[in-house]
Write a protein that binds this DNA or RNA. Structure first.
Length: 874
DNA sequence: GCGGACTGCTTACCT
DNA sequence: ACAGGTAAGCAGTCCGCG
């Protein structure tokens, strides 16, 4: 057995035995202890093996600082910059001239001007001389009315927040292990065994020279173990005058009635007495510690005491609610700002002495949702996420929160804290590990990872590589000026350029279908074709012959593109190393699971890299890069289709990066794979094999049975959220029947069963045997009700009816409504009666749901038409 | 004034 | 606030209809 990944490069374990872990103290007597922040933050001169979690700026000290978490003492240390680093921006105006500018050199925060050189990638890597203007305060550079960047006709690198600038200049990698040695911050590098390096090099083979320098920098990020980060989850409940109105957290006008903490070793509820009951029972709470208070201020005081000592706090929507409410409630109850352990920022809240992780924005992040969790939850609510990931939910409430007894309230509140904690602990701390890896790859502090979107991560990752190599960070307007043009037209109105190709499906049931797909097509293209903002449409005459098919663009042959190298490396190491190692039976289970986390994290970055280059809000937005990527994607799939057909294989379907081959021989498949790597330079793999697949004439719409007997459904109405449950149920019964089909004869039998299912569904509907819940159509409100000005879709009509009844309707909420015969034709399920259901409309729903399946199977829905008039029989 | 053809809006899916 | 492509249902508009 090999050692586990977590300790084979590092020897944290030895030290664990030397020191005692910190336990939370018993809360008994509450005293307002005004310990100054200075003392709370004091850091010893030597601290070993902490994980660096956050970077910030201290306005009083005028210094950058980092927050380090010591996994052994379970506490946060602060380390302040000792390298005399200052905020700055760059300009092309010479130093002598700047010195004549009284407003700049006379600025109260002005420090100095340095003459420096930068490499300008946008202009063929030529060396440019620049002046670097330093100031004491980041606001003096940018962000105030009197900032220096506004006094300059043109400034570079002036919009980067100071803490990010500091990270880049100091070369700090958040999420890595650091020690403080003799007052200095020192990175603890892992010792990666020679044999591992050799294995890795041989896996990446010839491509290694495309990105070897990046590989050297990135390997420690993957091979540094992630220590166990203790954290405590918190949830609060507050009094509310109206049953289903959530109190405003900026007002904090009502009592805080319960606060729960949950973690490995701290499980307690602080609760306010609201009844006259002599003996309250706490049977629901098990061995959770209960603190009952007669006075709200005592409760808040005890909670604040906890928040001073908890190093890492986890909430769900704490930024907008729990933390903000506690802060404002604290002020209302007379606590001074200094005695409240919470920082309130513009769009975040934090612990003054620790770190606050809000899981809501993290799980709301679209890339996390789709690439890390495969869209398993569709709404960002604690209920939906825990249902999907933990397979359990919140405690069901049968009355409003203020009406709950103390015991019920404590139980409800504690359960929320507990499931919030579990969102970070399930699958062996998967979420915590992913967050740490994301920090390392993007070089962003934990606060930014949980609160910013994927484009911010990717931007920071690329900026960091620029600063490291002394490249000038390009300005968005300069990229656009040089590389703004596109040469294709999108199929969808309003889009900027043409995207992927979908091969016209050949209708019918096809047996023995092999699906080949390109492994990460777009990242592979970016790597193979050297796509980057500086290499596309480069200034060299001799490169203009290196054209991208179907476009007017060309790409550089002389210089290796930085984003091409970066994306290429991340793609290759994921596909050729981590994905392989995650399945390697010769290594330990722990190691495999760590490799799985790494490959899943890389997937989030890789899958989004093409998209960001086509997004206007991205600071490295470069339309020809995005356009060339999709053009080469179309080129690749079309060439593959042609080649397959040339070989005599029928291509029955394909979408973006895949081809569906009808009954190919294993030799043909091998031949095609070899051809792809040799002539396109992109790996083509077998993705899945169908016993049979049924295609209709609709694209992105098919079903099939895989080799192992599982049924695979894509795009059919029966799996869409806005299809009523009763239609979905019948649809799934049909799938059950189909999953057992192996040949044409089976099909004939299956058809008879399917007819029965369809008939039964119609009959139930006719007889009124379907419940309101099963008839509900669920549609998400994607914007505020007021914003629907052009049309009024049905779910908006239903939502407006709800609002009329005084119910709150929020963006992102899913509206459940039914179709009625009474005006206006729809009603939210809460207000509808079974007698007003429009049965005719629901028949149409059934018809179109079934039609898609039957179409694909070659059964004519018309032969069922008699069924629709079944009503006459009853 | 009403219905059919058409376009545009909106949502949910696929890659 | 990562992209474009496809399907579907409905809202709204225009036009023809003696």
């Amino acid at each position: 057995m090999s050692q586990s990944t977590l300790d084979f490069f590092f020897n944290i374990k030895e030290k664990v035995e030397e020191k005692k872990e910190k336990k939370y103290e018993e809360i008994s007597e509450i005293k307002e202890n005004a310990v100054s922040l200075e003392i709370r933050r004091s850091t010893p001169k030597d601290v070993l093996n902490c994980i660096l979690l956050d970077v910030g700026y201290d306005g009083k000290k005028e210094k950058a600082f980092v927050k380090l978490y010591d996994p052994i003492r379970n506490r946060i240390y602060f380390w302040y910059d000792n390298t005399d680093h200052h905020p700055y921006c760059l300009t092309d105006i010479p130093k002598e001239e700047l010195e004549k500018n009284k407003r700049i050199v006379g600025h109260p925060s002005f420090l100095k001007i340095e003459e420096i050189e930068k490499i300008d990638l946008l202009h063929d890597g030529k060396i440019v001389r620049m002046s670097k203007i330093c100031a004491r305060d980041p606001l003096a550079i940018g962000g105030s009315s009197n900032s220096i960047r506004n006094m300059l006709p043109s400034a570079w690198e002036a919009h980067i927040p100071y803490r990010k600038c500091y990270i880049m200049d100091a070369g700090i990698i958040p999420g890595m292990i650091y020690s403080i040695k003799d007052g200095d911050l020192v990175l603890e590098k892992p010792n990666i065994p020679r044999v591992t390096i050799n294995e890795l090099y041989s896996a990446l083979k010839d491509d290694i020279n495309l990105y070897e320098d990046i590989l050297q920098d990135f390997l420690p990020l993957f091979f540094t173990p992630i220590p166990k980060i203790k954290r405590v989850a918190m949830d609060i409940e507050v009094e509310s005058p109206q049953a289903d109105v959530i109190p405003d957290s900026s007002e904090a006008a009502y009592h805080v009635i319960a606060v729960a903490f949950s973690s490995d070793d701290l499980n307690e509820v602080h609760i306010l007495r609201r009844s006259n009951k002599e003996n309250i029972t706490w049977n629901l709470l098990g061995d959770v510690k209960i603190h009952l208070y007669d006075n709200e201020k005592d409760l808040i005081s005890a909670v604040f005491k906890r928040l001073w000592e908890i190093p890492i706090l986890v909430t769900f929507n704490g930024d907008n609610f729990d933390m903000l409410y506690l802060y404002n409630r604290g002020l209302r109850l007379g606590f001074s700002r200094n005695n409240i352990p919470i920082t309130v920022g513009k769009d975040y809240t934090d612990l003054k002495n620790g770190i606050h992780i809000d899981l809501y924005p993290f799980f709301h992040n679209k890339s996390i949702q789709s690439y890390a969790f495969g869209n398993s939850y569709k709404e960002t609510t604690l209920e939906a996420i825990t249902q999907a990931l933990l397979n359990k939910g919140k405690v069901p409430l049968n009355k409003p929160i203020p009406d709950l007894s103390e015991e019920e309230l404590a139980y409800y509140c504690f359960t929320d804290a507990q499931i919030t904690y579990e969102l970070t602990s399930f699958n062996d701390d998967l979420v915590m590990k992913m967050i740490i890896l994301m920090m390392r790859i993007s070089k962003l502090p934990i606060l930014d990872i949980t609160r910013q979107s994927i484009s911010a991560w990717i931007r920071n990752m690329i900026y960091f590589e620029h600063r490291k190599r002394n490249y000038l960070i390009p300005r968005p307007e300069d990229i656009l000026k040089e590389k703004g043009q596109v040469s294709t037209k999108a199929i969808i109105k309003g889009k900027k350029y043409m995207g992927a190709i979908v091969v016209e499906p050949i209708e019918g049931v096809h047996f023995n279908v092999v699906v080949l797909d390109f492994a990460s097509l777009y990242p592979s293209i970016i790597k193979r074709w050297n796509l980057s903002y500086e290499t596309i449409r480069c200034p060299h005459e001799e490169c203009k012959s290196n054209v991208i098919p179907e476009t007017s663009h060309w790409v550089c042959k002389k210089r290796r593109g930085i984003t091409s190298a970066l994306v290429g490396f991340l793609r290759d190491i994921r596909v050729k190393w981590f994905k392989m190692k995650a399945k390697d039976p010769s290594i330990s289970k722990d190691e495999r699971s760590m490799y799985k986390v790494i490959q899943a994290t890389l997937k989030v970055f890789i899958n989004a890299t093409y998209g960001v280059f086509g997004s206007e809000h991205f600071e490295l937005y470069c339309p020809p890069v995005a356009e060339s990527t999709t053009a080469l994607g179309r080129f690749s799939i079309m060439k593959t289709k042609e080649k397959a057909e040339e070989m005599g294989i029928k291509v029955i379907y394909g979408d973006t990066d895949s081809v569906f081959l009808y009954n190919p021989t294993p030799e043909q498949v091998e031949h095609l794979k070899r051809w792809s790597i040799n002539s396109l330079g992109i790996e083509l793999d077998v993705d899945k094999v169908y016993r049979w697949v049924a295609l209709s004439n609709r694209k992105k719409n098919y079903l099939g049975v895989l080799e192992n007997g599982t049924i695979d459904v894509k795009g059919l109405l029966g799996k869409k959220r806005n299809t009523p449950e009763f239609a979905k149920k019948a649809f799934h019964e049909i799938l059950q029947v189909l999953s057992k089909v192996n040949n044409m004869e089976d099909f004939e039998l299956a058809k008879k069963k399917i007819i029965k299912i369809v008939q039964e569904a119609y009959r139930k509907l006719e007889r009124g045997e379907v419940s309101l819940e099963d008839l509900a159509i669920k549609v998400q409100l994607t914007k505020p009700l007021k914003a629907y000005t052009k049309t009024t879709p049905q779910h908006v009509k239903a939502a407006r009816l709800l609002e009329h009844k005084g119910k709150k309707v929020l963006v992102g909420q899913i509206i459940s409504f039914v179709k009625t015969t009474t005006s206006p034709g729809v009603k939210p399920i809460e207000l509808a009666k079974i007698s007003e259901i429009d049965i005719q409309k629901y028949k149409e729903y059934l018809q179109s749901t079934f039609e898609q399946v039957l179409d694909a199977l070659g059964i004519d829905i018309e032969q069922f038409e008699g069924i629709t008039s079944l009503s006459s029989w009853f």
